[in-house]
Design a binder for these strands. Structure first.
Lengths: 167, 167, 167, 167
DNA sequence: GATGAATGAGTCTTCATTCAT
DNA sequence: GATGAATGAAGACTCATTCAT
């Protein structure tokens, strides 16, 4: 907490004025990260163009430098022991399954248009999300040695072979 | 250290009998994990069959439940501050670039046989490795909610479109 | 550290608020002790009277109850292994030789006036300092059984025979 | 205990075969040191020559390199807290007062012959012993910087002025 | 006699948290 | 709002001691 306060240029005493405890601060950050993530999905649906255009936009939006630390945060929240109950609830609400449900309509449409591979949509989505998160976490922990993947590369996991383009 | 010792059913005192410090224990684990990883590559080359067969074997070997914690360990070693100097050296020796160099001959052959996509081999390998590691780390941190990916799914990142099969 | 904190009536946590480590606290004490010692020499030169008067004042000043623990501290610093580098430097700066040099002018004058024995001044000073320190350390460790020596008794080590008085 | 055993070239297990505990080993060493000290006094009385000859022999015997660690040991025993009860008893038996009593006959004879200063014999002896011990302890803890005093120098504390010789 | 695996009390140190000012 | 002195639980590490072999 003292280090966080110092980073923010305030005393740790004042940090406790804004957040009752480290758990509360952590919970707040997780909440923000999750809202950002679901906001990204809404934005994707508003994006013009084909299914592939929307997906590419979603990936580009999620896989930028700013989003890095959010992924790391969620990872910590998922991976650590002794995480506050409230954080576990937030994470539960935004489970992989929840994201799968959000994206399923898009993928089903993509399969109708022939853009998306004709495998089980849920499996494709879960795979894409897992791989995207994993990539971001790796990059976030060691940016020097682990480059961000080209979103088009990741798309190969879900595209119909006919739509795969050179990198 | 006391928790580790308790997990092993010994006193922390005895743990210090075998490892001079937490750093030394950690270093030893990282060393083991890294040797396991490079061993997996050797084994892949000995595996019979096509390039795809070899790669599938490599992924299945790496992405099993036992290997889970090794990925998590390496991730910790890469991501954390205050990691012992020796660990940083070991990790430096087995960089992403090193793995890329090991796998490049196989990928070049795969491109000759038409099994592997005709993009830059280095980029394909780095992408596959990143995604594989990221997936394992996510799964290792939260096995209940994040299923292991089907290795064939990951292979889509590097296969020539003609060789992509339904999942 | 906990015992020291308890002696001071504070928690060990607060002690660490003021001193980053046991080494730093120890270093600070050694520094203070050494400054006190060299201050005693300055004061001696300002003291009025003959060479013997000055020396007697110096000994009385150094050999009081308060100074006791300082001698013990310096002794620990000299005698112990694993003493912080900075402490070794401070002690090196205030070596026996350094004190000898400080006192030499006074002793040479004393030899001119006939108050000080006509042996090698450096040897006389080193002997007096050693004996004074040793006495203080013994007294500090076991005040009940080892009485403080009368400074006049110590002076016999350096006085010309003609100036020796009954105790 | 492990370090002591290693110095002796045996395992710490075997050290416990010979000494039931660290306290017992320490007690044994203190006992030996004290017997050596009182043996030195007996030997002094057997030494031929004048009172000064005997005293000089005593000092030379006590202030050699071998005796160094014995003085340090006794000092530790006197100075430390938590010293075993038996050690405290041994030290109590060989108190300063006990040594004073042992040496008093010699000093009284020396005062008759005019060799020893005509101050209170007890005070002279206590002073000489204190100074001798202190010197040895200092030298033992830091032999490089603190030279052993010339025994003749120490004798000045107790000699009649007429018998003081150049160093 | 001899070894070293095994234990646990005690020590230094960190850090989240509280609270008087 | 803002500060930092103050606390204590918890973790890394050491070392005297025991005991099976």
């Amino acid at each position: 907490m003292s280090m966080i306060a110092a980073s923010a240029g305030i005393s740790h005493g004042l940090l406790y004025h804004y957040f009752k405890s480290k758990d509360e601060l952590f919970t707040e950050l997780v909440r923000l990260a999750m809202e950002g993530a679901s906001g990204g999905i809404d934005e994707m649906f508003d994006h013009p163009g084909t299914v592939i255009d929307k997906l590419r936009h979603f990936l580009q939006d999620a896989m930028n430098e700013e989003a890095r630390l959010f992924f790391l945060l969620i990872h910590q929240a998922r991976a650590s022991e002794g995480v506050p109950e409230e954080v576990r609830m937030i994470i539960g609400n935004y489970s992989i399954d929840w994201f799968v449900e959000q994206l399923k309509p898009l993928f089903l449409e993509g399969q109708r248009t022939g853009e998306i591979a004709s495998d089980d949509a849920g499996q494709l989505i879960a795979g894409l999300l897992t791989v995207m998160s994993g990539t971001m976490i790796l990059h976030a922990s060691d940016e020097e040695n682990i480059p961000l993947l080209n979103p088009d590369h990741l798309l190969r996991l879900v595209l119909a072979p006919a739509h795969i383009q050179p990198l």
